[in-house]
């Protein structure tokens, strides 16, 4: 096969006690169709598992879906672990049910983007493709 641009590698999964995975599977599928290599971890991951996986898989970014209301603790915890383990260059984005008033604080903490309900799939694809920078 001819040498092509290296594909993006993105970890997609769900953290915490939250079984709503229909949306996150659609996102994984859409990104696959956009030429991205998705490392899909499935449900019920701890922040520790997510960060260890992201490092082993050398992903460009982590996308986490949260519908449990625990975003204010789980997302900062993932950011903390990434920095602690020298992987602060891995981008974090999220989606799910996240109240508007929580968004500025999470973004200030370092979450690059949060996608709420009814986000057009193309917005997520465009965001991910724009991550194609050296990390």
């Amino acid at each position: 096969m001819a040498v092509a641009a290296a594909p993006l590698r993105i970890l997609i999964g769900k953290v915490g006690l939250d079984g709503h995975d229909r949306g996150v599977k659609l996102v994984a599928r859409a990104l696959r169709d956009a030429g991205v290599e998705i490392i899909y971890t499935g449900l019920h991951q701890t922040p520790e598992q997510v960060v260890a996986t992201a490092i082993q898989e050398d992903v460009h970014a982590i996308g986490l879906s949260i519908h449990s209301g625990a975003h204010n603790s789980l997302l900062p915890r993932v950011l903390h672990l990434l920095r602690e383990q020298g992987a602060g260059d891995i981008a974090l984005f999220g989606g799910g049910i996240i109240p508007d008033e929580d968004v500025p604080r999470l973004k200030a903490a370092g979450v690059q983007m949060l996608f709420g309900p009814a986000t057009p799939m193309q917005s997520i694809v465009n965001f991910v493709k724009a991550l194609h920078v050296e990390h």
């Binding site: 696959r32 169709d33 290599e37 998705i38």
Partner: peptide, 14 residues
Amino acid sequence: ITGGAVLGDRIRMQ
């Protein structure tokens, strides 16, 4: 077709 992939083997090993 697209070069994309869903790498799901490790779900069983998480």
